[in-house]
Amino acid sequence: MDKTVNQKAWFLVLPVFLVVAFSAVLPLMTVVNYSMQDTFGNNQFFWNGVGWFKELLDPSTDLGGRFLASLGRNLFFSLAILAIEVPLGIVVALSMPREGWTVAACLVVLALPLLIPWNVVGTIWQIFGRPDIGLLGYVLNAMGFDYNYVSNDVDAWVTVIVMDVWHWTSLVALLCYAGLKSIPEAYYQAAQIDGASRWAVFKAIQLPKMNRVLLIAVLLRFMDSFMIYTEPFVVTGGGPGNSTTFVSIELVKIALGQFDLGKAAALSLVYNLIILIVCWIFYTVMTNAGVERKVQAESEPAVEPKPSAALKPVPALKPREGVA
């Protein structure tokens, strides 16, 4: 199904274009403006050229050191949570009940953390992890672990990562579940007739079908963890010391805390550029995957099993719970 060329479609897109341009382009222009200047308050600005950018990318200066350190921490954080959430999300999606009221119940509980305001997520874990009044901290300390996320770097990191896993694994799981649901029953029946093992079914049927949604999941999770602010800020405040200060926390500190407009603006631009590049890579991969799938579907339509034809003659296969 080819799209028709129609330039009038721009009229339909215009409202979106205006709204987003108003919220994105206009403020960004201010940022570019600030990033080239220095200020000593009183709305007096001085031209500083690329000075802030030079400082930002030089680890020996204060600004550069802080930025690169927080960037490193943030990348480590993003990779760590992806490494946990993606496999865990797949496992949870595969563990979803098949039918009945339990499906709805599981879906609602899974989605619950996603709808809690981010600072309340922080508050929940702040309370839950405290050694004096929180269940987790209390139990861990009673078991002999010296757990305290306020004073110990490692404990703070573990708390922040576990909190993110708690908060967002459901997103990965729900996306994978949607992918799994779209697999026609006939695929499984064919696999069963072929005597495929559980692992083979996962590798040959379920994983390829989840490809696309997994890509969306990784994209969303990477981006959102890369700009995480509220949750770790509420729990650890970026500390102990600077050990859980991520890029957004550093940026807000500089921009709204110290009101260092030039530095903050330069940091914003570099930060945005990194995000833009990563986003572009994902987008390219995603559109290419879409094209590939279309080509594949067009070249081998005969291989696609016809669910209606395959389903009818094999009612005897229905009770396959024991095999799985």
């Binding site: 201010t30 981006m223 700009m227 602010y229 921009a255 930060y271 986003c279």
Partner: peptide, 24 residues
Amino acid sequence: HLFFWLLSNRMAPAAVYALPFFNL
């Protein structure tokens, strides 16, 4: 390009926009 530009705004960090939005 427009679609990608839109998408990239979904990913833009709120911390970047906090100060300019305040001014705007």
